[in-house]
Design a binder for these strands. Sequence first.
DNA 1: GATGAATGAGATTTCATTCAT
DNA 2: GATGAATGAAATCTCATTCAT
Lengths: 213, 213, 213, 213
Amino acid sequence: MALTTEQRVRRAAVKLFAAKGFHGTGIRDLAQAAGISSASLYHYMGTKEDLLVGIMRECLDRLLLAARRTLDSLDDPADALSALVTLHVMAHAAQPDETRVVDHEVSALSRPARRRIVGLRDEYEDIWATTIDQGVAAGVFDAPEPAVTRLALLEMCTGVARWYSPRGPLPLDRLAARYAQLALRMLGSPSPPRGTAAERAREVAAQVWRIRP
Amino acid sequence: MALTTEQRVRRAAVKLFAAKGFHGTGIRDLAQAAGISSASLYHYMGTKEDLLVGIMRECLDRLLLAARRTLDSLDDPADALSALVTLHVMAHAAQPDETRVVDHEVSALSRPARRRIVGLRDEYEDIWATTIDQGVAAGVFDAPEPAVTRLALLEMCTGVARWYSPRGPLPLDRLAARYAQLALRMLGSPSPPRGTAAERAREVAAQVWRIRP
Amino acid sequence: MALTTEQRVRRAAVKLFAAKGFHGTGIRDLAQAAGISSASLYHYMGTKEDLLVGIMRECLDRLLLAARRTLDSLDDPADALSALVTLHVMAHAAQPDETRVVDHEVSALSRPARRRIVGLRDEYEDIWATTIDQGVAAGVFDAPEPAVTRLALLEMCTGVARWYSPRGPLPLDRLAARYAQLALRMLGSPSPPRGTAAERAREVAAQVWRIRP
Amino acid sequence: MALTTEQRVRRAAVKLFAAKGFHGTGIRDLAQAAGISSASLYHYMGTKEDLLVGIMRECLDRLLLAARRTLDSLDDPADALSALVTLHVMAHAAQPDETRVVDHEVSALSRPARRRIVGLRDEYEDIWATTIDQGVAAGVFDAPEPAVTRLALLEMCTGVARWYSPRGPLPLDRLAARYAQLALRMLGSPSPPRGTAAERAREVAAQVWRIRP
DNA sequence: GATGAATGAGATTTCATTCAT
DNA sequence: GATGAATGAAATCTCATTCAT
């Protein structure tokens, strides 16, 4: 079960890009962290940018997969949003480095790569937008400016990656539940989140990220 | 009222650091954007890092000043939090570049500079923490995990800098009001934000950032 | 009358590109030969390719200038061809490094640069083609395949850059005269080259390359 | 009749060295063009330089062999020179890549390899020198500067490799005949080239290079 | 025979910074 | 004040080559 060199490279990159930024991370830093020479690095990646793109793609692909898989079995908008928040928070708490890279380094991408990555991000955000709209239409959400509310929610949840520590006092599932509560409050939703949503979100998280809260 | 060269340098740096990151911005980029030679740059700044520190200091100093000045005349915790949210949102919407630099480039600082900047940031966040604690103690806020709520609030409000555009459909004061509402909802506060808080926040914002909403 | 650094760079490049080829010459070789650091090199050139293009352009520009200036005052096709050969040989004998670079390193150019340089070369060769055609039309040249003859002539004369040494037994003007004779023989021209052509060619060579035979 | 891997490597090298130069051709380019991995390349060649030397040796060996075999059966200097020109032109037109490599990449060789290759080239040129000298001695050639004439002839003929295309309008034997005529004109030889010389040259070319004009 | 893995050395180019003018 | 000239260090990436499998 030892890691392959390729995996070691990827992990080193994720950690360093998150800590020092893409431009702040040198090829030598990467090589040293992966335990190989900087020339050998080029067996496992194309350019440094390819490495970045790979990290971002995988992270966003998983987020999209998780969101879609979850919503497939949830009809109630409050449940759906609850599940989205739970998943998003779990993902960002469990993979803070990956998600921070996705969040912070878009500007480091070349034009064509940026277009692709932003496309994925937009797909993901569209899922949130749709869910919110459905809740508003159903009369269970109160969101005068749905777009503003969506962005507020997303930024709030994404921010978890910037401060959550598994070594802190709050276990991951408690954190996620708390955030789901905050989200429903923001939407003026009277109903407390039902267990089903959180249950479903946890199942999917376990499948997609192998998170076991 | 023409800008001094020093101001031009500062503004160019803010824009470029925000757009491409500190490490992604070269000294020559700065010089070109400021309209001087890269050698002349060194008359107006110390090192590149000094420039970054200056930008961050000023931004945080203003935020702190604004927060303190506002709270001086507000007793009610709901009013106080309302005002803090309003100020924070206005600052981040009106100065997205400055605040993004503060937010994203802490890792680019050397150890001693980082300590100072993080110190300022912590001072600022302490004001929020105190305000929340007071609301909880007074029974007007429902925040089982006050620290989590504080971080959720801050990330939500800070995120404004990443997406708000003055050319969008939402005027700044409406945005701030909406965020204040969201914040109070998150805190389970029954009382709608009173006009005084927003009023006071706008006064201070006008003094500190010359924002006229 | 000391050389500027830029001139030293140019000369070093000409010598090294001619001796070891463009790809065989490293940036460090250039810097060392020019007596500056490799970083300083970039004050005086853009990229290594820009340096190559500059060398080629200048060389071809001069060749074109010389050819045009000469033909302006020569009507007789035999005289004209005589003068072209004389100029070409003098240029290639006096500037063997420049001309060898033009001759050998076209394949090292990027697509757009190559297009420009080959364009210049074609302009120059067109002058030869026209001159030969005129001689054939006038009945003074016998060239069953004018294009073949032109290429044979050009290759023969260009080759001078690959072997001629000013330290050899043959002075430059004797060499040029000999080549003019060979060229007219190849064209089956009965008339010996008149003095006017060589005279005119020498004048122009003195103007364009400051050659004093 | 499929090619062996070794032949594929050799041909790929010839093509690439001719097109991009020795230093401009990477080991990976070679491997890709030969359809094997770059590590496998080292089963079929020693170093990259060995490959170059092999190409040059073979090319020059064949040229020498052809020249010697031809002259064995030709006594008349005009016939001999005619045959030399014919052979040289045919070789350079039929194998432009090989001959261009011989011509352009001598400077890429290490000292000892260069000595050997230049030795072969000198042997070959000596054959031309001797033939010209004999013609001069016999009074059939007019060459005031025999060495200059030899170099002019060789450069003219070698140049064929730089422009001749089998897809052009001129068949190979017509081209060779034209060049033989040009050569004899340059030498002031009154006699038209007799059929025997061309005949013999064609026979040898067929043996040595399997050229069928 | 064939190749993925590996690398030290070196490629070109940019970096932030200094200094004489 | 302003800048062209200069540079050591470092950037990303490629080089030819070796070797265990």
